[in-house]
Design a protein around this nucleic acid. Structure first.
Length: 781
RNA sequence: GCGAGAGUGGCGGAAUUGGCAGACGCGCCGGCCUUAGGAGCCGGUGUCCCCAAAGGACGUGGGGGUUCGAGUCCCCCCUCUCGCACCA
């Protein structure tokens, strides 16, 4: 587990820790070696914001929160490997972020360039694409702005294919999660086609529909495309274009991507040549063409593209049909035809059928030297620069003579200076004000130089921490690859769906780079991932900003950690959201706490029952014994699929039966003892404290948590008698208790002997009899 | 528009392969115990027909289908949640 230390523990932590700890404890009892540490994702913005509000240093705030969270985790009874704890804000950890940065830099995977970037005016820093949701800051919800800045990027796009294709290795991922990542990576296949522009270099366009090339009636450049400005330079259109470009740049992301907004554009006064037919087509610019997708230029085929169609209608540009729909009814004068079809009006390609047209045209383009097969991705390189203080310094030095110089490895870590005015300015990074720290000698020429003052996105910290867990105190390397190979990939990972296109995509990317660096062999870090649900309140996410975080302290005080854990686990499947009830903590006192008391009484009232040799087991005793074995079997299966709510239900049933057994006069010492010990062991992973206490009260001196998981006798775990259902024409007409080993003949005989069945047969002979021994027989008349 | 997930009693949820729908729990009803009960123990509790019982009919968002048998498989539709979305 790797929480952000935001303060005291809240219910979200309680849920995920309870799930995770129950899994870990169960696996240990099953004899597995379990590596299950707790570390802290300790860099990040909230520390600065809180520190600004309270006038204390982010470091003080962070370490104090880590202490609190550590304490709560212990109070909850989590069995973490406490000595493997890591904190990303420790120089001993973040030096390896810097070390990785240098490795990335050497391979061209870390680079600096000027590019439009999302700027959050509230947090006063740039953000990666993944951290902008529908035009708003993922963290604070402020509307983001676009700024042209020189920033550091990690080249995640180089890994886009592998990120997509290797998803097949993640067999323990939900469809939902895989779909989120696939959408985000957004691979499409098509072709790049070169268009000649008079007096200029050729410009390539990207299209997924090369079969519609003959229908291209105009050409569009993104307003920000450098060529667009050059084409109108010195013409009467120059002023109009400047105004248009300015208007487009003022649009927020939310406005620009609003599909219902009418498209705007203008003719740039020049022409391009369609390479497939030599036709001169006008060059336009339009706000719906984006600079950073494809080549920033498109061929517009209004007859077969929704956006081009709308634009052509608006500006009265020719719409030429080149695809004949397979279904004539699909053609409409008021809409473009987007689907596949037979090529028409396309010269010698006329008649090319839909299923091969794209391939045929692409091959022809390549043969003619006009274009080539191409693919495109939606995902962009990961912008990792942040203009904030509380993060890992980027290990780069700028020298007037040598330019951009990486900090030599032996000078790592570049320690974050503490005596800095860390308030964000909205201009330079706070670190720029740390004059002594900033001004350094160039590692190459020893001349005057300045350090990079931006810090790294904290998602860098969390992209490889699980590898550090295997070797947390290594001072030579981030981790020993051999040790990592012994443990990785993680057998079981737990995390929320909100990380689908954040942490989970960055960490996968990092892992693949580690493979390429020869430091890891597992291409995927967490092939099995449990997406635990969100704790909501009135259907709304719990969050600090909403002020609806529930502090578990009251639950600890009133009902204890075990009640709280059990309550969470019993509320439903782990992957499902859980709405915290209005009555709050009180419901723990109705659901979980009384049942634990019932367990306590059952154990205590039977504590002195000691087996005194072989006593005769009555049918009553045997029935209970069989139930114990069956419960062990089912609860074990429930644990394997993390179905804690049903595991608890089965234990509740067992306890109910034990009470009934006592009420019916049962009290066989051996049977009772077996029942209680099995019950405690099965419950131990979920309720570690009470089971330990009761275990000791039974007279054991060792810990219940070091006991082997109980095993069952298959013969005892199976039922002796089962309920046989008799159906007539598919409806249940009678149920009979029969021996589990009943033969089909016997089933038929018993079914036909039933008076109830006889009444429904009304004297008719069954036409057909289906038997599914021993549970079901179906008579058809 | 594209993609994914979901829809079961008053509530949380169960039903692993097509085989008694509603396990377990909450709530509610009744009983026992108690000076008392926001404690504990025992029992009942899908809806409807029926005085009741026996019995029966209906019932997993809606409509069709396959099957002896469908919450589960197939087709169509509705609703909700999430993601992507002028991505060429």
């Amino acid at each position: 587990m790797f929480p952000y230390p935001s303060g005291v523990m809240h219910m979200g932590h309680v849920e995920v820790f309870s799930i995770h700890d129950s899994i870990a404890r169960n696996l240990r009892m099953r004899g597995q070696q379990v590596l299950n540490p707790l570390g802290f994702d300790a860099f990040g913005l909230p520390a600065e914001n809180a520190a600004i509000q309270r006038g204390i240093h982010p470091k003080t705030w962070t370490y104090s929160n880590i202490d609190k969270l550590f304490g709560s985790a212990q109070r909850l009874g989590c069995s973490f490997d406490w000595e493997r704890t890591i904190r990303t804000c420790d120089p001993s950890y973040y030096r390896w972020n810097q070390w990785f940065f240098l490795r990335f830099y050497e391979r061209g995977l870390a680079y600096r360039r000027q590019a439009p970037a999302w700027w959050c005016p509230n947090d006063k820093t740039v953000l990666a694409n993944e951290q902008v949701i529908a035009g708003r800051c993922d963290r604070c919800n402020a509307v983001v702005e676009k700024r042209y800045l020189t920033q550091w990027f990690f080249k995640i796009t180089d890994y886009a294919d592998r990120l997509l294709d290797d998803m097949a290795l993640n067999t323990g991922w939900t469809e939902r999660l895989k779909s989120l990542q696939s959408n985000w990576i957004g691979r499409s296949f098509g072709a790049e086609v070169e268009f000649e522009i008079e007096g200029e270099e050729k410009v390539a366009v990207y299209t997924t529909r090369p079969d519609t090339l003959w229908g291209a009636t105009f050409f569009i450049l993104a307003p920000e495309h450098p060529l667009a400005a050059r084409l109108v330079e010195g013409t009467e259109l120059e002023a109009e274009f400047a105004k248009f470009k300015d208007e487009v740049s003022r649009l927020t992301e939310i406005d620009r991507t609003a599909t219902e907004r009418p498209k705007k554009g203008m003719f740039l006064g020049r022409y391009a040549v369609n390479p497939v037919n030599g036709e001169k087509i006008p060059i336009w610019t339009a706000d719906y063409v984006l600079l950073d997708y494809g080549t920033g230029a498109i061929m517009a085929v209004p007859a077969h593209d929704q956006r081009d169609f709308e634009f052509a209608r608006q500006y009265d540009i020719e719409i030429r049909k080149v695809i004949e729909p397979l279904d004539p009814a699909a053609a409409s004068p008021d809409a473009p035809y987007i689907g596949p079809g037979v090529m028409v009006n396309s010269g010698s390609f006329d008649g090319t059928p839909a299923d091969v047209s794209v391939g045929v045209v692409t091959e022809w383009l390549e043969a003619q030297g006009l274009g080539r097969a191409a693919k495109n991705f939606r995902i962009r390189d990961w912008l990792i620069s942040r203009q904030r203080y509380w993060g890992t310094p980027i290990p780069i030095i700028f020298c007037e003579r040598c330019g951009e110089v990486p900090v030599p490895e032996e000078d790592l870590p570049v320690v974050l200076p503490e005596d800095v005015d860390f308030r964000p300015t909205g201009e330079d990074s706070p670190l720029a004000s740390a004059t002594e720290w900033v001004n350094v000698a160039c590692p190459e020429c020893s001349g005057a130089a300045r350090r990079e003052t931006d810090t790294m996105d904290t998602f860098v910290d969390s992209s490889w921490y699980f590898n550090r867990y295997v070797d947390p105190h290594n001072s030579e390397l981030p981790f020993d690859p051999e040790i990592a190979d012994a443990w990785m990939p993680a057998d079981q990972y737990t995390g929320g769906i909100e990380h689908a296109v954040l942490h989970l995509i960055y960490a996968r990317f990092f892992q693949k780079v580690l493979v390429d660096l020869g430091m890891a062999s597992a291409p995927e870090p967490f092939p099995n991932l449990l997406n635990q649900g969100t704790i909501t309140m009135g259907g709304k996410r719990m969050s600090k900003s909403r002020g609806n975080l529930v502090d578990p302290s009251e639950a600890f005080e009133r009902y204890g950690a075990d009640s709280l854990r059990l309550y969470m686990l019993f509320s439903g499947p782990p992957e499902q959201d859980f709405d915290w009830p209005e009555e709050g903590v009180r419901s723990i006192g109705r659901v979980a706490y009384p049942w634990l008391q019932r367990v306590w009484r059952l154990c205590e009232e039977n504590r002195d029952v000691v087996s005194v040799g072989e006593l005769h087991e009555s049918p009553l005793d045997q029935a209970l014994k069989r139930r114990v074995h069956r419960t062990i079997r089912i609860v074990s299966e429930d644990f394997e699929r993390f179905s804690f709510n049903t595991a608890i239900a089965r234990l509740q049933e067992l306890v109910n039966h034990a009470y009934r057994y006592r009420a019916a006069g049962g009290g066989h010492p051996g049977v009772v003892r077996e029942l209680i010990e099995a019950l405690l062991k099965l419950l131990a992973p979920m309720a570690p404290h009470i089971t330990e206490e009761l275990w000791h009260r039974l007279g054991h001196s060792d810990s219940i948590h070091t006991q082997a998981w109980p095993t069952f006798d298959p013969a005892l775990a199976s039922l002796e008698e089962v309920t046989m259902v008799v159906q007539v024409n598919g409806k249940v007409r009678d149920t009979l208790e029969v021996p589990a080993g009943i033969t089909e003949e016997e089933m038929k005989a018993r079914a036909l002997a039933s008076a109830k069945v006889g009444a429904h047969l009304e004297g008719r002979e069954p036409r057909k009899i289906i038997t599914k021994p021993p549970k079901l027989i179906s008579l058809v008349v």
